[in-house]
Every structure is written in structure tokens, then in C-alpha cells.
């Protein structure tokens, strides 16, 4: 309904509007892959959540003492200790960068996922109000998606970062020659006939790891966001049944989503450690 500026959006329009990114071009990206476009909302919210997470960690780190910790310090210490324990168990080698990466990933993904708890219309409406008020924008073309992990670019960006770390540690631990040797001789063995098969397997493995790493988080958060929108549609029917359904189902889904948010952040961190840990193991 491109001309529908007078009536309320249909369910399809509502969802479609909510699932459209605020892009650098100002309108919806049409091509599946277009490197000239950037999702401003994803970048903004992931930066905001990253800074918020790091700010909290930083505050704890600043005031960290070996004496009796306060509640906030104790909470951060529990988190750090958890990450340290996991990384120690999974990665055998120098962890002075890997453990902080795992902590960053966990905090960052947790905060980005947690954006899903905000009412689905709250931030988009504020963004619309600001855009209309200060920039004179058409409210139907102001898009805002606030969960950066429900954007495939966001999650794949992180999983590719993990891939780069894997490549770096493969070369660092095994040497360039050793790693190339491994690419052609593992997993099936060292035989000229097996070289191409081994190499293909390794390439598939790297690609599968990275794509599944990013897709898993994206899929969970995207689905969660979509369910929240469908629940919001219940309330928008403005009937008693719709209102009750919105409250009851929304509460249940939000509570269940607490588990998903934390679990997905934890899984993303654990897989980061596992993949980097694999780079440390010689076949």
C-alpha cells in the first residue's frame, strides 16, 4: 500500500515496516547483496550496546580491588571468572587476547539480544517522532530495527571476525607451512590422492562453522523478534481478547526469551572459544 497514508497499516505492512532496516540509502535494500548499503540502525545499536557493555565492565575494572567486593564488582567477577574457566578448559595456549574476546562477545551479544525485551514499537516510534519532528521525514519511510543480532550482517560480521581469529591462530600456532600442510593432509591422511578431498573438507568446515555460527544467533533473535511483533499485532486488534492475549502471551514469550537471550549469548561465546580452540589443536 504505497498510497496508504490515511489508514492504519495492515498486519503485513506493520511487520514489513518493522523488518525493514534504516539504511544509508534511506529506502529498503532490494538486492540480496549490496555492499554499497549500510544498515545505520544495526551499526548504531550494536555500537551503543557495545559501549554500554564495555562501560559497565570498565567501571567494574576501574574499581576492582582485591578486598571485599561490592555486589556489582562481584557480579562482574562471576562473569569474568566464568569466561576465564571456560576459555581455560577449551583453549590451550596463550589466552591473553582470546579470553577478553570471549568476554566481549558474551557481553555484547547479551546486550544486543536484550534489546528484544523493549516493546517492539517503543524505539521505532521515538525514531519516527525525531525524524518527523527534526528532519521532516515521511513517517512511513522511517525504519528502525533495534536488535542488531536479528540482522544477519551483525551476526555474520562477528562470526567472520571469529573466522579471522581462527585463521590467525592457525598460522600463529602451526606456522604458515604447517597450517597449509594440515589443510591438505587432514582429516583423511597424507596421500596425494586425498589432498583435494582434504582441502575441500577443510574449506567446507571453515565455511560451515562461520555461517552456522552467525546464522544460529541471527535465526534465534530474528524469530524471537518476529514473535514479539505477532504478539503486538494481537494487542493492536483493540479487542478484549486481543488485549488479554497480548498481555498473557507477551509475558510468557518475554520470560521464555530471557532464556534464549542469555543462552544464545553463551552459545555464541562458547562456539567462539571452541573454534579458536580448534585452531590451537594440531590434527
Amino acid at each position: 500500500m504505497s498510497s496508504g497514508t490515511e489508514h492504519a497499516p495492515t498486519a503485513g505492512e506493520y511487520i514489513g515496516h518493522h523488518l525493514t532496516h534504516l539504511t544509508s540509502t534511506g529506502h529498503k535494500q532490494t538486492a540480496v547483496i549490496d555492499w554499497s548499503v549500510i544498515n545505520l540502525d544495526t551499526v548504531f545499536w550494536s555500537l551503543a550496546m557495545g559501549f554500554l557493555g564495555l562501560f559497565l565492565l570498565m567501571r567494574a575494572a576501574r574499581s576492582a580491588t582485591s578486598g571485599v567486593p561490592g555486589r556489582f564488582q562481584a557480579a562482574v567477577e562471576i562473569l569474568v571468572e566464568m569466561v576465564e574457566t571456560q576459555s581455560k578448559a577449551i583453549v590451550h595456549g596463550d589466552r591473553s587476547f582470546i579470553a577478553p574476546v570471549a568476554l566481549t562477545v558474551f557481553m555484547w551479544v547479551l546486550f544486543m539480544n536484550a534489546m528484544d525485551f523493549l516493546p517492539v514499537d517503543l524505539l521505532p516510534n521515538i525514531a519516527t517522532w525525531i525524524a518527523v519532528q527534526f528532519f521532516g521525514a515521511d513517517p512511513h519511510h522511517v525504519y528502525q530495527r533495534v536488535v542488531p543480532t536479528a540482522d544477519l550482517n551483525g551476526t555474520l560480521g562477528m562470526s567472520i571476525g571469529v573466522l579471522l581469529l581462527c585463521l590467525y591462530y592457525n598460522i600463529k600456532i602451526k606456522g604458515l607451512g604447517g597450517w597449509i600442510h594440515e589443510l591438505f593432509t587432514a582429516p583423511f591422511g597424507s596421500h596425494p590422492l586425498l589432498y583435494p578431498i582434504n582441502f575441500a573438507m577443510q574449506m567446507i568446515e571453515f565455511a560451515a562453522k562461520t555461517v552456522s555460527h552467525g546464522m544460529r544467533l541471527f535465526g534465534n533473535m530474528y524469530a524471537g523478534e518476529l514473535v514479539f511483533m505477532l504478539i503486538a499485532l494481537l494487542g493492536s486488534t483493540a479487542t478484549i481478547a486481543g488485549f488479554l492475549g497480548h498481555v498473557v502471551v507477551g509475558s510468557i514469550w518475554a520470560i521464555f526469551h530471557i532464556l534464549i537471550v542469555v543462552l544464545q549469548a553463551f552459545i555464541f561465546m562458547m562456539l567462539t572459544l571452541v573454534y579458536i580452540g580448534q585452531a590451537h589443536e594440531a590434527h
Binding site: T42, T104, G157
Partner: peptide, 21 residues
């Protein structure tokens, strides 16, 4: 859709990790 956001996120990833470290 895939776009340049991916690279921005990749960069942010490393900056945040570096900061934490």
C-alpha cells in the same frame, strides 16, 4: 540482505575485543 553493515560489525568486533583486552 547482506550489505556493508557486515564489515562495520566486523571492525567493531575487533575494536571492542581490543578494548576489553
Amino acid at each position: 540482505n547482506l550489505n556493508a553493515t557486515l564489515f562495520a560489525q566486523l571492525l567493531v568486533f575487533f575494536i571492542l575485543a581490543w578494548f576489553t583486552m
